[in-house]
Computed example of a mutant assay.
Amino acid sequence: MDIHLGDISHIIQLSIAPVFLLTGVGTKLAVLTNRLARIIDRSRVLEDRLGAAGGAGFAEAHSELLTLYRRAHLINRAITLSTCCGLLVCVVIAALFIGDALDLALAKFIALCFVAGMLSLIGSFVYLLREIFVATQTLSRRNLPSVPK
């Protein structure tokens, strides 16, 4: 079985769109890990404060810490789903190359992996949105100065 230069360029053309998608997923993973790092940093500060505090500061710090744990859990799920999406997109790219190079009928497998990847990406965005809602809900509950009417 000979693979010609024209065949390889056709295979590369087929894989361009999934590669761009993979770049976007990588960028999203960077955003998610940044959010998780900030949550972890804040949690460490609060854990230290809980160890040294007593009385009134304890309840507030404990409440914020519980919220941060919830946010971290949501971001972890978003990271997991984004990573699954990235892996599935890699499988799609590999299957495109293998299927076209070896003349295998992998269209249904490729479509299944692509749809599974998109569902993973959608789920990741849903968890990110939930985490953002939890974060902004916490912000609105803090003791902010009242705005005159």
Rank of each mutant, 00 (worst) to 15 (best):
C84W: 14
C85Q: 08
C85H: 03
G86A: 10
L87W: 00
L87D: 02
L87E: 10
L88C: 04
L88A: 07
C90V: 09
C90E: 15
V91M: 13
V92K: 02
V92Q: 10
I93V: 11
I93Y: 01
I93K: 05
A94N: 04
A94G: 08
A95Y: 11
L96F: 06
I98T: 08
I98N: 00
G99L: 01
A101S: 10
A101Q: 06
A101G: 03
L102R: 09
L102T: 04
L104A: 10
A105R: 15
A105M: 11
L106Q: 01
L106K: 10
A107G: 01
A107R: 14
A107T: 08
K108C: 05
K108V: 13
I110P: 06
I110T: 08
I110H: 06
A111R: 14
A111D: 11
A111M: 09
A111T: 02
L112S: 12
C113H: 00
C113F: 00
V115S: 01
G117C: 08
S120Q: 06
L121N: 02
L121I: 02
I122Q: 02
S124K: 05
S124C: 05
S124Q: 07
F125E: 12
F125V: 04
V126S: 09
L128T: 13
L128S: 12
L128H: 04
L129H: 15
R130V: 13
R130G: 05
R130T: 10
R130W: 13
I132D: 02
I132V: 14
F133K: 12
